[in-house]
Each structure stands twice: as structure tokens, then as C-alpha cells.
Design a protein around this nucleic acid. Sequence first.
DNA 1: CGGGAACAAAAAGTCAGACTTATATGTCAC
DNA 2: GTGACATATAAGTCTGACTTTTTGTTCCCG
Lengths: 233, 233
Amino acid sequence: MSTTGRGLHGRVLDILGPEITAGEYPPGSVLRTDELAQRFDVSRSVMREVVRVLESMRLVESRRRVGVTVLPTCEWNVYDPQVIRWRLAGADRPRQLRSLTVLRSAVEPVAAGLAARNATAEQCAELTERALGMVAHSRGHQLEGYLVHDMAFHRVILTASGNEMFARLGDVVAEVLSGRTHHDVMFEDPDPAAVTLHVQLAEAVRERDAVRAEELTRQITVGALQELDILAP
Amino acid sequence: MSTTGRGLHGRVLDILGPEITAGEYPPGSVLRTDELAQRFDVSRSVMREVVRVLESMRLVESRRRVGVTVLPTCEWNVYDPQVIRWRLAGADRPRQLRSLTVLRSAVEPVAAGLAARNATAEQCAELTERALGMVAHSRGHQLEGYLVHDMAFHRVILTASGNEMFARLGDVVAEVLSGRTHHDVMFEDPDPAAVTLHVQLAEAVRERDAVRAEELTRQITVGALQELDILAP
DNA sequence: CGGGAACAAAAAGTCAGACTTATATGTCAC
DNA sequence: GTGACATATAAGTCTGACTTTTTGTTCCCG
């Protein structure tokens, strides 16, 4: 699951990153490279590489004669996939999930509208296929199978939009959907209305009906938001 | 302007990063750490830190016995502010500007709707102030002054939304607006209709009219998109 | 002639230690 | 109290030796 794992430096990052994003060190806290190197039992070279990466994520700032200062949340590169993963795995997971779902509700409808204009025949086909897959797994405790198709469906929509900024949110949406199934309470079977909306959306894209695609996606994301409100009002 | 500048490692990054994002090395190209260190006349330690940062941006991937492989564009962390800046400064600036403007058109209306619900009294006041500032600088070659208020206006909207993902796009929007004034052709004075829309938007937020705020912002962003279409059809 | 196992080379990864540089802070004179 | 100066500190840099992983080749055997 963890993308980083490769190398000693990645292992340290996978411990220190989550600690920082979890807020274990309040903003302004100062860490010393030497101490960290000692704590993780790695050389200063490795520790320096870790600090550089954390710095590029704007989680910390390294200054001479001061040390490695933890930056306030508002500075963090919250779109960094790594940061998103760390935060979703941490304590403020609910807040994070809500932020991301709101982002979804803004982006996906527009993306779907563009997809209706730009999707290739292959993309239309996969969309239909995935929607049917969702239908097939919508009853009788097949949540895992349903999730696979749901994630793929939304990824295709975002990719087919033709906008690379949208496309890059595929991973984020996948994380959100996955989290809903695995971590949060999910009813035995998915909402039948939502399944229908997906089928209709695939249809709208295939028929190049941008307005309808946008509206349908808006309904899907509104549903996702309402689901959150029920869980954590 | 460059955030990185600090340290020897930052200077190398400021050269190599733009080169990669400009597509000077096609995806799959292999760079060797030693050669790069030689080229930039820095030690391998410094070069390794640079590679680590590029790796965390998913611009490259470092593998043993192979070298540092340049990744295809679809892998890049295109939301990384650094990457955005590098790309905006490079050759595919127009494409990048369009992607970001489309993103704006998706996000800002929703953000404005939320801002109408969540904005504090201070934020409402600054919004009005900035709108008036835009009016004051809307005639007679005061593009710089206009830009300052325009950027601040949109940043307040995004921040006031209360969603950190939206708030973090303030820099992106600022870059887009700034680019329009500085690099691209901009008519002598801003479109009077756009100025009016901003004044009305400040009003709508102040009056907690979320629907109207959303609709007005939609008109603003549609205008921005049309402007792009005129420039690069 | 084909396939697989052993081997060798190449490049990144790691470490240790010495040295440099910037800078926050304390000290002292005025 | 204020300013200049000295000092200590922690990051920054460099070098060179060593380790580990992986790829590609070679060579043996079926």
C-alpha cells in the first residue's frame, strides 16, 4: 500500500511523515537532524534526504542554526498524494474526508460535462462496463467488487475529461471511495439510487449529453456529501 | 520569486526541475546521479537530495543499477506549487494555463457558495474593500493595481470557503491571474462587466446569498475561459 | 538449439568524519 | 538602553570507502 517503502530513507519518511501530519509536533516545534538520525538509527545523509522531502511538501522548514521547524497546517501541500494518504490514515481522518468530498462535489460534475464532450469510444465502453459491474455487485455483500468498479468508473470520468488536473484527482477519489467502504460505516449494500445514477451517467456520456452528465454527477456527489452528514453530523 | 533558492541544493533544483517539466528529457530518459553531480559541480550528497525531491514530485524515479528515470507527464504531481510554477515558466505554458483555468471554473463557484455561508465579518469587509479597489483601478492603465486587488479578492473567497483544499488553490489562482496580466495579451483595461460581477459577488457573500454567489462566480470564470478561447482558440 | 543458473559489473544506497557557513543569542562597551 | 562584536550552534557541504540490488551476460546442461 505504501508507495514509499523503497529504501531506508522511505522507511523513515513513512514514520516521520504520519507523525507530523497527525499533529504530534505542534507548528513551530523544532526538530534536530542529528537527534532524528539517532532516533531512527540512520546516517545524517539519509536523514537530510528525508528532511528535504518533508520540506518540499512544506510540512517543515529547515533553517541554519535553528533546526527543522514544523510548519502550520495552512502551509502544507495538501494535494500531495503522500500527504493525503498520511492524513487519511491519521487522527483527523473525518475532517480530511469531508474536505476531499467537497472538492469532489466541485470537480466531478464539471469533469463529467467535459467527459461527455471528449470521451473516446473506448472510454465510453469502459464506463458502461463499469456501471454494469456496479449493478452486478450491488446486492448481497459484494462490497469489495462494487468498490473496484466504482473507483474505476470515476477514474475514467476524470481521465476522459481531457484535463490533466482533473485526471490527477483519480487517486484522491479512489482513496475517498475506498475509505468509505473500509473504514467508515457502510450500509450492507450500496444505495440503489446511486447505482442507477451511475448507469444513467454512462449513458449520458455515451450520448454526448454534457448538461445531463453534469447534472447526474452533481446528484451523485450530493449523495456522497449527505452520506457524510449522516455519519458525522 | 523562486521559493527554493535557499541553499546549494535549491539552486540545482531550480535548473533541473524546469528542464524536466519542460520536457527536455523525454519520459524514460535515464540520468545518472554522478554525471549530474559533475555537471552542476556539486557533491553527490547534494545531488541525491535533489533527486529525492524530484522523486517526491513524481517527476523521476530512482532505481538501483538503472539510474534516475524521467517519468511520463501523467505521473507528475501537477498540484505541487513548485511544479506548477516551473511549468508556467516553460514552453507548455498555454496548455497549463488552460488546465488551471478549467480547474478554477469548477472550484471557485462552489467555494463562493460556501464562502457565502461561512465568511466572517472581517472577510466580508475585505471582500468589499477589494472589489472597490478593483473598481478604482479599472480605468486608465492601472493594471498592476487592479491585479493586486483581483488576486486578493479571489484568495479571500477561497479561504472564506472554510475548505482547506480550496484555500490552498489561492496561490494557483494568483498565478493564473498574474500570468494573464503579465505574459498574455490583456486589453488596456479590464472588462467592465467582470468588475461589476466582482462587486455583486462581494455583495452576495455579505448578504449570505449562496446561490447568487455561486452563479456570479460561474459567470466570472466563464468569462475567464472565454478570454482564453479568444487568445488561443 | 533453448533454457536456466551462476556470475560480474554498474549504479544507487549507505555510512562516517571532517570541514564550512550562516545566524541567533549573549556580552560588553558606550 | 543601544549598538557592535564575539561565540556557540546546527545545518550545509564534501569526500571517499563500502554495501546492496539489479540487470545483462555467459556458460553449462538438457
